[in-house]
Simulated scan of single mutants.
Amino acid sequence: MIKEKLVGNYIEEFGKLWDYANELLSKNPVITMKVGVTRTTPDSPPIFKRFYVCFAALKNGWKAGSRKIFGVDGCFLKGPFQGELLTTVGKDANDQMYPVAWAVVEKENTDVWTWFFNLLRKDLDLEWL
Results as ranks from 00 to 15, higher is better:
D123G: 02
K27P: 05
A101H: 00
W102Y: 13
P45F: 14
V37A: 10
K34F: 12
L25D: 03
G90F: 00
I31D: 05
L58T: 00
K91P: 02
D73R: 02
G74E: 07
N118L: 09
K63I: 13
G71S: 13
G36Q: 12
A56P: 01
W62K: 00
V104E: 03
A93K: 01
E84V: 14
D43R: 12
N28K: 06
D73C: 01
T32M: 13
Y52L: 02
A93W: 08
C54Y: 05
V53T: 07
F76K: 08
V37M: 06
E108D: 07
G36E: 14
D111G: 12
K3D: 13
T110M: 07
V35A: 11
W113K: 06
Q82D: 10
E12A: 11
Y20N: 02
I11G: 12
V53H: 05
D125N: 13
R39Q: 15
D95H: 12
G15M: 11
L77S: 00
K5F: 15
A57P: 04
K107Q: 14
P42W: 02
F81N: 15
L77M: 08
N9Q: 04
P80D: 10
R67C: 05
K63E: 06
Q82H: 12
P80W: 07
I11Y: 13
N22W: 09
V104R: 04
G90T: 03
K59P: 03
K91I: 03
A103M: 06
N9C: 09
K78H: 06
W18V: 11
N118H: 06
T114C: 08
T114N: 14
F14S: 04
K63W: 05
K122T: 09
L126M: 08
K34N: 10
K107P: 05
D111L: 09
I2D: 15
R39C: 12
G36S: 14
R50C: 10
D123S: 02
M97Y: 07
Y98E: 01
A101C: 06
V105H: 02
N118F: 03
N94H: 10
Y20T: 04
K91W: 01
Q96S: 09
W18G: 09
K16T: 05
V37S: 09
V104G: 04
D43N: 13
K49S: 08
S26C: 04
F48D: 07
N118C: 10
T114W: 08
P80L: 07
W128M: 15
E106M: 10
G74A: 14
F70I: 14
R121L: 10
G65N: 00
P45D: 14
T110S: 13
D123T: 00
R121Y: 03
A57T: 09
T87G: 04
L77Q: 01
F76W: 10
T32L: 15
G90M: 02
I2N: 14
F116Q: 00
V30T: 15
L17Q: 07
F70C: 11
E4T: 15
P99V: 13
V112C: 07
G90V: 00
E84S: 11
A101Q: 01
W128P: 12
V37K: 05
W18C: 10
K5Q: 15
D19G: 10
